[in-house]
Each structure stands twice: as structure tokens, then as C-alpha cells.
């Protein structure tokens, strides 16, 4: 699969899973997209560790250090899977995976070169010595426990936005 096909398939499948999908071809466009996606969802939690996160954090003056108190988490994630439209969050490097779980809105930035074709490719890459936590996230939190009717935002985020950069 070519890089462009892989990204297209990933974005298509993520959208099917009810994630908001965005793509920036030039890193300089990231702030504008982030500003639009986060909009008035404040306060923001952003780990500010990776280069992309540092750029993102600078955009939001109203930030909190405690993700449990945030309305939105903006973070760069480990990778993604095109086959299923999934983003992959890992605990390696001291990252709090649950920071993408507690706030109502999760904004995940994924580098396009970190998109795996399939689940097999992902697990082949992490099967040797996995970190404490690997979480695959496909769309927002959901349930169909009442009359099998889909409801969004049970215990996890009711909104998931993915930005490929």
C-alpha cells in the first residue's frame, strides 16, 4: 500500500467509526486545524513532550496539568492502524494513556509515517516486549446496552478527533 493510500484508508475507516478526521500536509497548518478542532473546549490538557505537542501546547493558554480536570486532551499518539481506523496509545515513555480517556474530548495527532497497514503489522511491532499498556482506540466511547440503540460517550470521550500530520 502506498503512503497516500494507507492514509486515505485510515481516515476513511476512522470516520466510519465516528471519529472526526483531519489531515495537515504542512506542519505549519497544524495550529489552525487544532484551533478549529478544540474550539471552546477548555481547559486543555497537553503533555507537551513531543515536538508536535510543544507546538500544540503553545496554542492554548488555558491548560491544566491534571487530565481528570480537563475538557479536552490534545496529544500525539504512538501510531494508527489503517485496516480499522484505529489510533494506538501506549504507556511507553511515561505517557498517561488514561489522559485520552477521562476528558469528554480527545484530540489525537498521529504522524503519517506511524500508520500501520494492518493489525498484524502493529502487533508484530510491539509483540517482543510490550509496554505496560497498549490501548487501541477506534472512535468515541459507545454503548448499545439499552435496546441495542447506539449511545455515544459512556465513560470515555464522546468526541474523538484525529489529525494526521
Amino acid at each position: 500500500m502506498s503512503g497516500a493510500d494507507r492514509e486515505r484508508l485510515f481516515l476513511k475507516n476512522a470516520a466510519i467509526a465516528a471519529a472526526g478526521t483531519h489531515s495537515v500536509s504542512d506542519p505549519r497548518d497544524l495550529p489552525a486545524t487544532l484551533g478549529r478542532v478544540v474550539a471552546s473546549d477548555l481547559p486543555v490538557y497537553c503533555p507537551g513532550v513531543t515536538e508536535l505537542e510543544k507546538a500544540a501546547a503553545a496554542l492554548f493558554p488555558v491548560r491544566v496539568d491534571d487530565y481528570a480536570a480537563a475538557t479536552v486532551t490534545v496529544e500525539e499518539v504512538f501510531g494508527a492502524v489503517a485496516e480499522t481506523g484505529t489510533i494506538v496509545c501506549v504507556s511507553a515513555g511515561g505517557r498517561a494513556v488514561q489522559a485520552g480517556l477521562l476528558p469528554a474530548h480527545h484530540v489525537a495527532i498521529v504522524r503519517r509515517e506511524r500508520i500501520f497497514d494492518t493489525l498484524d503489522d502493529l502487533f508484530a511491532a510491539v509483540s517482543g516486549s510490550p509496554p505496560t499498556n497498549i490501548t487501541l482506540v477506534t472512535g468515541p466511547s459507545r454503548t448499545a446496552d439499552i435496546e441495542l440503540t447506539l449511545a455515544i460517550g459512556v465513560h470515555g470521550p464522546e468526541r474523538l478527533d484525529i489529525i494526521v500530520a
Partner: peptide, 24 residues
């Protein structure tokens, strides 16, 4: 199970929180 291509979450948990971890 539910007719989904993938569930919202799949967690792979390997041991408890270790030194340097902020998860688990």
C-alpha cells in the same frame, strides 16, 4: 459479538505500573 468492525477500545495490559510509567 455486536456487528462492529472493531470495538472502541482494546487494552493490552502487561503487568502493573513500573518505574517511569504514568499508566496502570
Amino acid at each position: 459479538a455486536t456487528g462492529q468492525t472493531m470495538t472502541s477500545y482494546v487494552s493490552v495490559i502487561t503487568g502493573p505500573r513500573k518505574a517511569g510509567d504514568a499508566t496502570g
